[in-house]
Design a protein around this nucleic acid. Sequence first.
DNA 1: TGTACATCAGTGAACGCGCGTTCACTGATGTAC
DNA 2: TGTACATCAGTGAACGCGCGTTCACTGATGTAC
Lengths: 195, 195
Amino acid sequence: VKKSKAETAKTRQRIVEVAAEEFRRNGIHETGVAEIMAAAGRTQGGFYRHFESKDQLVAEACSASMDQLVAAAKSAIESGNMAFLKHMDRFLSASHCEDWSGGCPIVFMGSELARADVNVREVVSEGFRELIDVMAGSGSGSRAARAEAILILSAMIGAVTIARILNDPKLSALVLKETKTHLANRFRRQQAEGG
Amino acid sequence: VKKSKAETAKTRQRIVEVAAEEFRRNGIHETGVAEIMAAAGRTQGGFYRHFESKDQLVAEACSASMDQLVAAAKSAIESGNMAFLKHMDRFLSASHCEDWSGGCPIVFMGSELARADVNVREVVSEGFRELIDVMAGSGSGSRAARAEAILILSAMIGAVTIARILNDPKLSALVLKETKTHLANRFRRQQAEGG
DNA sequence: TGTACATCAGTGAACGCGCGTTCACTGATGTAC
DNA sequence: TGTACATCAGTGAACGCGCGTTCACTGATGTAC
C-alpha cells in the first residue's frame, strides 16, 4: 500500500525519533529493528524502504539525539545564568538517570558508541564539538572557555554514567549532589571573574 | 576427561580473567561464551561445569576488573603523591582509551553495566565504594575527602568515556589533556592545603 | 482533465546466522573398601 | 597399598530462539500521454 510522499517522510522521521528513544532506553545492540518498527506503528519488512541498514539508522538516531541535546543546552545558555544552572541541575538529577526521553546519548549509550561504526562516532563527535562551542560562546570562545566547557561536560557525563550504574540510591544521589554543588560553585566563580 | 581439583580451579580462574578482558574489549553483549572459552583454551560445552549462566560470569569478571582497578589505585596512593599523579596521567592517556588490559570497567562497559542485572551492578557498586575509600583515606576519610574523591573519579571516567567515543584524535587528546591539568592542579592545591 | 501504467511504502513470511544453553558421551581423578 | 567404582571436567554436536535482512506480493500514488 504505497503512501504519499508527505506520509513517507513522516514515517521515516517517526522511525528515527522512536529509534533514538529506544536506543537510549535499551541500548543499541539490545534494540531490534522489529521492535523499533512496531513502536513506530509499522512492520519490520518496511524498514528497508527507508534505511540501508540498522547501522544507518543508528547514526541518524544518534545524530537526532545529539541535536536535541545541543538545542537544549543552547536554549538554556541563551536564557541566562540561572537557566543554565537549572539545566545542569536537571542533567545531574536522579530522574535523568532513569528517564531516557531527551537523555544524553553519551551517558545512555557511552560504551556502545565507542565501539560503533565510523559514521556513528562522527555524528556524536560533531554534536560534542557543537556542545563545546555553545557552552564556550560559539566560535568566539577563548581557549580557556573551551577548556572550561570540556571540564563541565566530562564531570556531568561521568557523574551520571556512574550514578546510573550504582545500585545504592544514596551513593548515587551523593555522586550527583557533589558534582552539582561543585559545578555550580565553579560556574558562579567563573561568571564573577569573567564578566 | 576429568581434571584434578587444582587444574579445575586454575581453569575457572582463567575463564574469569579472559572474560574480564574480553568484556572490556568488545562489550558484554558482543562477547560470546564460546569466544571466551576458546580464549581460555577450552570448548564451550565445559563452561557450565564452572558457571550457572553467562550472567554469573559477567558478575565475577566485573568483580575481578574492579578489584584490579582498586588495587592499582591503592598501590599508587600508598606510593605517594607523585605516584598518584602518574597513575591519573596513565588513566587519562590515549593508550588507556584503546588498551583494555587493566582498563576501567565503568569506562569500557559503562552503559551496559547500567542495564546489567542486580548482581553485576552490586559488585561494581562495591568496587566504586572501595575506590572512594582508598582515595579518601580508608574509613578515616572526611566527608570533604570523599567528595573530592567522587569529583576526581567522575571527571576521569567522564573524560575517558568521551575521549573513546570521539572520532577526532585531536579533540580526544584535548579532552584528556584539559582534564589531566585540571585534576593535577586541583590535587596539588588540595595537598598544599590539607597537609 | 482523464486514463493507463510504472512506482514504491508497507506487509508478513522466510532466510541464514550466531547466540546461550543442554546433552550424551569420554576417561582421568579421587574415594571407599 | 591395591582395586573397583562413582564423580565430574571437558568435548562437540544439537537445541530453540531472536536477530538483521530479503523477498514476493499488494494496492494506493503519482506520472506520462
